[in-house]
Design a protein around this nucleic acid. Structure first.
Lengths: 224, 224
DNA sequence: ACCGCTGCCGGGAGATTTCCCCAGCAAAAT
DNA sequence: ATTTTGCTGGGGAAATCTCCCGGCAGCGGT
């Protein structure tokens, strides 16, 4: 039998801490080593008992939970931080992960997702609420949908082949590479490009990339 | 009482479709209007019965589920697409959302998350599996670290004049416009550009725009 | 002062792009 | 059956791009 994972709670609401303790105690898979109501106490507690997981509220009386997490994971690298917060703003979430958190759960989500988050962190995985995920998705799509509204029609007026060529051009491929990849002549690629320019009312490769970025046609994550 | 939401299934595995039907029928909150085993049938079915939600598998025999979704949401804007897939790669997920999907669930996740996804889409919300969210988090973190890596040095090694020229080029200005604006010859602008290419290790105007976007030198929101 | 370095300015030359024109063929639409 | 559309390929010319080269002014250094 595996040893139980150990956990502490850092939250300034005693009632919420009590709820967490009860929730975790039911499962019998985690040992609660202690709890704290402020960042200072929390850090001291963590360094003393060295838990596997620290559940941290972002809004603490003395210091930001973000800073606490940054300190915590730095001075106790074996400890995984799970954020439990009322915030659903994506920039705060991103800050938390950037500071070293491994999981993020909103406070009003189901009990199950908190347990699921603990299990994920115990397995050294990441976890994010589906409620939070929805926000992330919206954020991913926000810029795109807005731009699609602005440019409605024009890109869709391109034929499938033209869209294919445009995508490759926007990715930085040369005419020669595209011709080889598509098994057509360079001249044909150039003709497609001319048609693209004409339909989109643009006049240079720079404009093409700008248009592509605006529409989210190119995946910036794939850029080296 | 609200009218039941209507749903169709597009998946090439008959057994999985049967499971979905059984799962949804239990809840009594959705009407299953039909099912299809290929993209072609699925699109035809959707246009015929006009469901509120289409559950789509990404791997279909005749066409990519991504393309199907793109067509579907374009020709039936009132229909929300929920992807059910075995893939957990973030680029595929991103493609799906980019194509117009509103939800993403991995096939081996709990039954509850599929129902939760349907409920979310019925409320015009987005949904993403927590199993998938973990991948998204990793992707967010990877992007962060990578951006930090590539930002260091290179762009800062450009002289003030070169940064000025690069900014103008990335904004879509022509060499002639830049030469006039800076009161220098076109040839000089071209030489600044060459030096920029050399220092950034890029070799075309397309690469320059990509680099500029990546570093946030250009403000995409100002693009017309 | 002399030298080396760097930033800024230009030219030359070949490759490439951009924009016209042209045409054949197959598939789809009318 | 006819027209339209899309994909393919090409010619040519002007413009532009990309990379090579050198000149000039400032600026600090052994």
């Amino acid at each position: 039998m595996k040893p139980k994972k150990t956990v502490i709670f850092i939250d300034d609401h005693p009632v919420f801490r009590k709820g967490l303790k009860a929730l975790v105690a039911e499962g019998k898979t985690y040992d609660v080593l202690g709890e704290a109501g402020s960042a200072g106490e929390g850090l001291k507690l963590a360094l003393a008992v060295r838990p596997d997981i620290a559940v941290v509220d972002l809004s603490l009386p003395d210091r930001s939970g973000i800073e606490l997490i940054r300190d915590l994971v730095h001075r106790l690298p074996s400890c995984r931080a799970l954020v439990v917060s009322v915030h659903e703003k994506t920039d705060i979430i991103a800050d938390a992960f950037r500071a070293g958190a491994r999981g993020y759960v909103v406070k009003d989500s189901a009990e199950g997702s908190i347990l699921a988050a603990l299990d994920a962190l115990a397995e050294d995985e990441y976890y994010m609420d589906s409620a939070v995920s929805a926000q992330v998705v919206k954020n991913i799509l926000r810029r795109q949908t807005r731009n699609i509204q602005l440019t409605d029609g024009r890109y869709e007026s391109l034929t499938a082949r033209e869209q294919e060529v445009m995508s490759l051009l926007a990715q930085g491929r040369t005419v020669r590479e595209i011709a080889e990849k598509l098994s057509i002549s360079q001249k044909t690629v150039e003709n497609h490009r001319s048609n693209i320019y004409s339909k989109l009312d643009i006049h240079s490769s720079i404009d093409l990339v700008r248009f592509a970025v605006k529409l989210g046609i190119v995946d910036m994550d794939l850029w080296k």
